[in-house]
Structure formats: C-alpha cells, structure tokens
C-alpha cells in the first residue's frame, strides 16, 4: 500500500453524508415505528388474552430467531409479491427494520413493565383505576426511567445493524463509502474511514447512554 490518501476521504464526504442521512433516517424511523408497534406487541403479550398474546409471542420469537440479513432478504422478496408492484431497496429497508426492531423493543418494554412490583398494580386496582389508566398513570411512568438507557443501547445496535442493508444494495453509509472507494480506486482508505466513523458515532452515543443512566439513577 503506497501511503494513506486523505484527499479521497475529503472528496467523498458529500456522498458519504448522503449515506449517513439514509442510515440515520432509517434508524430514526425504525425506532419510532418499532417502539409504537413494539408497545402494542408487549401489551398484547401481557394482556392475558390468548388470542392476543399467542400471535404476538409467535411474531416476537420468530423475528428474534432469524438472522437479520435473512429478514431483510425476506421482505425485499415478499413485499413486491404482496403489494403487486416493485418496491425499492431503500423503501423495503424501512419496512423491514420497523417490523424487526419492534420485536426487540417489545422485549425491553415487556421486561420493564414486568419489573414493576405487583403491589403497584393491586394498589391501582384497589383505587378503582381501569387497566388503561393503570398503565398510563402508574405502570408506564415507573417503567420508563430504568428502561431509557437500555432503549438507547438498542438504538445504537440498530444503527450498526442498518449496515446490513448491504445485502439488498440499499445506499446507506457503508455502501456510499464502498462506492466511493471503488470510484477512486482507494477502498482501503474508505473502509478505514467508515469504520472510524461508525466507532465515533456509536462510542459517543454509548457514553451518552452511560452518563444518562448514572445521572438518572443518582437522582
């Protein structure tokens, strides 16, 4: 290898930035939709009604036992068949990650809710609160605090996992770097750069999550 060419990195920055926006957007979308869907899944599993909890349980366990790459391939293949028209790699990725992350978020949420002492539920019921009221005013607010750092850690994992859209050729941060590397014929520089970029982002966020949990629990 003849010297490390920093100019390539500088020249490819605008392109990599586009890729970053896709990765970050995908992470954000999957977090919001995954949390919403995940909450429903968690509530369904905790509802005590077999026709709600069984499908939710099957869904969550299925998602968690299949490699993410396979899930990405599944959606990319099946979505056009279901909708009857072509779905691009990028759009397919959005649907996949929302559906996939919901399973993982639901497990975190469920654990958080199960962590609330039973006495709290009994006290709320004794006061005459309806199940939804109990969840909204008693269980939810108590469960959310210890859950936040765990959720943030999951978001970091999710951000790393978005690199797997590589399998269907969607143009995320990694793909952008790879394309630049090929165009300039400097793959080594671009792979090193993108590795560092992921590290800086994820390490920074994980420090934030740690400081956050310390501050929260100290309070």
């Amino acid at each position: 290898m003849d010297g490390f060419d920093f100019a390539v990195i500088r020249d490819s920055l605008p392109f990599v930035w586009q890729g970053f926006l896709f990765s970050a957007g995908l992470t954000l979308f999957a977090t919001i939709c995954g949390l919403a869907f995940g909450t429903l899944l968690a509530l369904a599993r905790l509802s005590g009604h077999i026709w709600l909890s069984l499908p939710a349980t099957v869904y969550v366990n299925a998602m968690r036992s299949i490699p993410l790459v396979m899930v990405i391939l599944w959606f990319f293949l099946a979505l056009p068949l279901l909708t009857g028209k072509p779905v691009g790699a990028e759009r397919s990725a959005f649907v996949t990650f929302a559906a996939f992350e919901a399973a993982y978020f639901s497990e975190i949420l469920r654990a958080g809710i199960l962590g609330i002492p039973r006495g709290q539920l009994q006290a709320a019921q004794a006061l005459g609160l309806a199940p939804m009221q109990t969840f909204r005013y008693i269980v939810g607010p108590q469960a959310i605090r210890p859950m936040l750092p765990i959720l943030l850690t999951q978001v970091i994992v999710l951000f790393q996992d978005t690199s797997l859209v590589y399998a269907i050729g969607a143009k995320d941060m990694l793909k952008a770097a790879e394309i630049s590397g090929k165009n300039y014929n400097r793959p080594v520089e671009m792979y090193v750069f993108i590795g560092l970029l992921y590290f800086v982002i994820c390490f920074g966020l994980s420090r934030l999550a740690r400081g956050w949990s310390r501050g929260r629990f100290a309070a």
Partner: peptide, 23 residues
C-alpha cells in the same frame, strides 16, 4: 471491548477482508 462493540460486524468483516492484508 469498546473498539469491537462500536463498529458494525459487517464493517469489521470488510476491514478484515480488504484492509488487513494491506497492513
């Protein structure tokens, strides 16, 4: 631990495949 935990596995794999042989 921090180094290996904060870079996606796929990126580590590509680094191992394309970059390490150059070093």
């Amino acid at each position: 631990v921090e180094l290996l935990r904060n870079v996606p596995l796929l990126v580590q794999l590509l680094l191992g495949y394309f970059v390490v042989p150059e070093l």
